[in-house]
Design a binder for these strands. Structure first.
Lengths: 220, 220
DNA sequence: TTCCGTTATATCGGCTTGATATATCGAAAT
DNA sequence: ATTTCGATATATCAAGCCGATATAACGGAA
């Protein structure tokens, strides 16, 4: 049922939740406000919009109702002319196609947000960016899942490092060291977020054991 | 001419430079030693190997010369049998296909390493991991290019933030803040690497201006 | 009036991913 | 001795993403 962790569709729906937009505007908005986190190309944005439209998650809405429709000078017959005019009507003066989110789209947004799949770095960041649309307990679960995932990644990397049967080139060590430190900084950040969420939304299941384990194992 | 920043082929060639390996072993090696940095799937590794083989950059080498070739029990005629046996000969007892790097492959490795294209986060990390195979001045240039790229990214993000015409959701701010801090930590790391490279390989063009500019602009 | 950068949509080839299929090997369990 | 099971090993597929490129209308500056 779940299409997998589709972050692009999530972002599109999330932004359309705020206001109607056309493709170009969506991309502009993404790079302006989320540029540090993600990057989207034309070759994925427009197909994504088409996909969402096909699913009925978004639909084209009236663009420039103020500008009167100028009849085409060329001579197009019957059905085709009607279709053409119909499409033009939804595109405004310039070739814009403004999209709005539908009920289905809203439901899809929630579904993707609450989809527990293994969420990689990037889709986690994006889901977190829209986390205000999430129930608190789901949000907390997402944070903990992510924390556990990083922990496991770091642990497995350490295991591989300890039983290493090969010589690493000097620059590899350098890079690995930096990535390790980046990971523990990520971890610390998420720990902090979890703490905040839990204090604002108290929960009896204290996680002291896990916290202590982290202190022991990851200490940089 | 340049195929773009192809990090997977770079890694494959880089590892084959150390020793002959088959696909499975390559993947194991990648996840074991570079797992923190990158991830590769079967669906890209095997096609990449096939691509490299087609280019003549790698070639199948004898796998298990100790094990004698057992003739097929089935009856295959002429050419096909010969081909079959030929392939089997290069695959050892189990269905392994061990690859080795060629002269062409070595040249390709150098070409990719020295390819000045806009190198994103991940391909930078991978190129740096193999940077011992690079001339010192190229290496330094790569580091500076990367530094400038991050600087520009941070600056443009700041510009967009300052002239922001929209309200960001609270969690977006949270995520952005973390990514900003990650970027300045990346930046500091690269600064440090540049410093080391320059001290071990002194150069008259001091970069004091740039350094001061960074202090002024990025100070977290 | 020309020129040029921005706005705007769309498509293409090549590559990556995650899933799945297939088959052999070796060692442990029954 | 035989089954069972996880590790080894290669390969392919649909779906999606990226970078590049094409097309064209708009709007202001020269």
């Amino acid at each position: 049922m779940a299409t997998g962790t589709n972050s692009l569709e999530l972002v599109v729906l999330g932004l359309l939740k705020e206001q109607d937009m056309h493709g170009y505007e969506l991309k502009k908005r993404m790079t302006e406000s989320l540029g540090l986190i993600m990057h989207v190309s034309w070759g994925s944005l427009y197909p994504a919009l088409a996909r969402l439209e096909a699913k009925g998650a978004v639909k084209a809405v009236e663009a420039n109702p103020s500008i009167p429709k100028i009849p085409m000078t060329g001579s197009l017959g019957g059905e085709r002319a009607a279709f053409r005019t119909n499409v033009e009507a939804l595109r405004g003066s310039r070739n814009k196609k403004v999209y709005g989110i539908t009920e289905i789209g809203s439901a899809l947004f929630d579904e993707i947000m609450n989809d527990d799949g293994d969420v990689d770095e990037k889709s986690f960041a994006i889901r977190l960016a829209f986390a205000s649309h999430m129930d608190p307990e789901k949000r907390l679960k997402m944070l903990k899942d992510r924390r556990d995932m990083i922990l496991e990644k770091v642990r497995s990397s350490r295991r591989n490092f300890e039983k290493k049967r090969f010589i690493l080139e000097p620059y590899v060590e350098l890079v690995l060291e930096h990535f390790r430190s980046a990971d523990s900084s990520d971890l610390a950040w998420i720990e902090e977020l979890i703490r905040k969420e839990e204090s604002s939304n108290p929960d009896p299941n204290t996680e002291l054991l896990v916290a202590r384990e982290i202190q022991d194992n990851i200490k940089n």
